[in-house]
Amino acid sequence: MKYLYYPGCSQKGTSRSYEESLFAVLSKLDIEFEELDDWNCCGTTTVISVNKVLSLTLAARNLALARPTGLPLITPCPSCWLSLTKANMVLSEGGTLPEKVAAALAAGGLTYDGGTVVRHLLEFFVNEVGIRGIEESVKAHLTGLRVAPYYGCQLVRPYAPYDDGYDPQNLEKVIEATGAEPAAFEVKTACCGGTMMTTRRDVGGGMSMKILRNIREAGADLVVTACPLCQLNLELVQYRENSWPRGGDALPILNITQLIGLAMGISRKELGFSRLLLPGVERSIIGKQQQMAEAVGG
């Protein structure tokens, strides 16, 4: 089965581990993702803070490029998902905005009359691959591993068409399908700080640290996210502050596709583990897995 893939900028840079693990997992599932040709930045929350027509036009160009294929556009990034979804909504409403965006698209030789379906990868895994589909592909059950499901904000706010916005469950479902145990914690939909990790380190860092403290209290072995910026920020704040407990290890922050891939028995190299920011994280997961294997073997 073939789908159209919108990577978003992070997948080609800071989040290469997310993309590599995604493709490793897809090949095991016999699913083909074809990258949208000549895609551009979705505009995210940044461009809309500078120029709204430009922001919607950037998103709309991708929707216009995808339209002739008739395929749904799947993105692993919640911020891309939100920008593209919002553009679809605004362009279908009245007012002058759709006209202005249409004029800008026309200047580039493009038209868009709606119709491109945009889906986020997590929802795709839950509803299209299916939890049973993931379970059937699992070769090495991750029994005994306690995994914190961290959603962040834009995956569930302001829209949550595929999950409960206040108590989402899709990550938990995927974690359970791998044989691991979801660790319950309070702030699973709190914001990691977003770009403030760069522009206001005091504020952004504080927000990420608060989430990590809560996760540690919940006794999780590692964290999974379905957002490239959440994944980066929770690693970055630990790297910068060297903030893991004295003598202890950093808390590993994995992309959800890396967790699925581990359960499928895919090698850590293929899953992009060497691209993670935190040194030693790989070691701590291998250690935990060895403990698990010994426990099972013994």
Binding site: N40, N51, V53, L54, T57, L58, R61, K100, V101, A103, A104, L105, A106, A107, G108, G109, L110
Partner: peptide
């Protein structure tokens, strides 16, 4: 094509 599109969008 992208440049022309951006140029036009920035006029609004």
């Amino acid at each position: 094509s992208f440049d022309r599109m951006v140029e036009k969008a920035l006029t609004f």
